[in-house]
């Protein structure tokens, strides 16, 4: 089984559109949307939810107003500004979005007035799509810890892929280079980076490649909308190679990608447009490079 994570560093480079197109091109892959902060893959793949599960992560402090004696110890110990001093005639309270779940206040409260229940942070789903099974998730508003949810989505995708004997796991990764991206990429067989020929795109690509190097994951780079700035595209190609990544192809600017999105379809299903052709060729080359079995006729 192979696991491929599609990331971009910079947001808005077309990562989800390309992931969905890959899903349409490969034969019964396991799909996982690890961009749990702003999960959009479902908008194109229309998953039918089979099971949903709560996502529990860590704990949260909760002050029992009955037992609190307003000594202020929790307030003085909390390093996350999560404890609010009492307003008139009131007791100390916790701001849930600021609470880190460290338990220091719970441990040191002289009255044992602070409870420490488990924290629900979102939901994750096992679904079926027209291209194969899919694991996706939704983080509650204000919930933290999307890195752990990313790990959970990947883990469940692995499990389901084994059950369903999928040969490939296709992961739509999060933007950036922080905790969620690290959680989405470590241990994967390859990272597919989609960038755009802009200064910001190049800048972010180099940070992403430093990360993949740091974790020794093979990186393949694809330049989307390359014709917006061909000389920048060339510059990116050179610096990608210098940083140990392989340039796997380029996709021309194509307004049909947005039209396909509005029609809730992948570009492959929507139209035989220039970008669809480019993506097909890229997938073919990428699958070959990674020894992934390919669909007949694609």
């Amino acid at each position: 089984m192979k696991e491929i994570v599609i990331i971009s560093g910079k947001g808005g480079t077309g990562k989800t559109s390309v992931t969905a197109a890959f899903a349409a091109l490969c034969n019964h892959a396991m799909l996982a949307d690890c961009d749990v902060d702003a999960a959009d893959l479902h908008l194109l793949l229309d998953p039918e939810i089979q099971q949903s599960h709560p996502f529990i992560s860590g704990h949260i402090a909760k002050i029992d107003g009955q037992r609190c004696i307003n000594c202020g110890k929790c307030f003085s110990l909390c390093r996350f500004d999560a404890i609010n001093p009492p307003q008139t005639n009131d007791k100390y309270t916790v701001t849930p979005s600021s609470c880190e779940g460290c338990g220091v206040c719970v441990h040191f409260c002289p009255e044992q007035a602070i409870e420490f229940p488990e924290r629900r942070c979102g939901e994750w789903y096992h679904s079926e799509t027209r291209f194969g099974p899919m694991i996706h998730a939704r983080l509650d508003i204000g919930a933290e810890n999307s890195g752990k949810l990313v790990s959970l989505v990947r883990q469940q995708a692995h499990k389901l892929a084994e059950d369903k004997q999928c040969q490939l796991i296709l992961v739509d990764g999060p933007p950036g280079i922080g905790c969620p991206v690290i959680a989405a990429t470590t241990g994967a067989d390859a990272v597919f980076v989609i960038t755009e020929p802009t200064y910001s795109g190049k800048h972010d690509l180099l940070r992403v490649l430093e990360l993949t190097k740091h974790f020794s994951i093979p990186a393949y780079v694809c330049i989307n909308k390359w014709d917006i700035n061909p000389s920048m595209a060339q510059e990116i190609q050179i610096s990608a190679a210098k940083n140990g990544a392989t340039l796997i192809g380029t996709i021309p600017y194509d307004s049909k990608i947005t039209s396909a999105q509005i029609a809730a379809k992948t570009i492959i299903e929507y139209d035989d447009s220039i970008s669809a052709l480019a993506i097909k060729e890229i997938w073919h080359n990428f699958a070959k490079a990674l020894n992934i079995e390919q669909n007949q006729g694609n």
Binding site: G147, V150, S151, C179, A183, T186, G187, F215
Partner: peptide
Amino acid sequence: NGQLQAATDANVEGHWV
């Protein structure tokens, strides 16, 4: 049967979370 060799290093990267 002595077919397993003791590992000298981690064989996967940490998952961080």
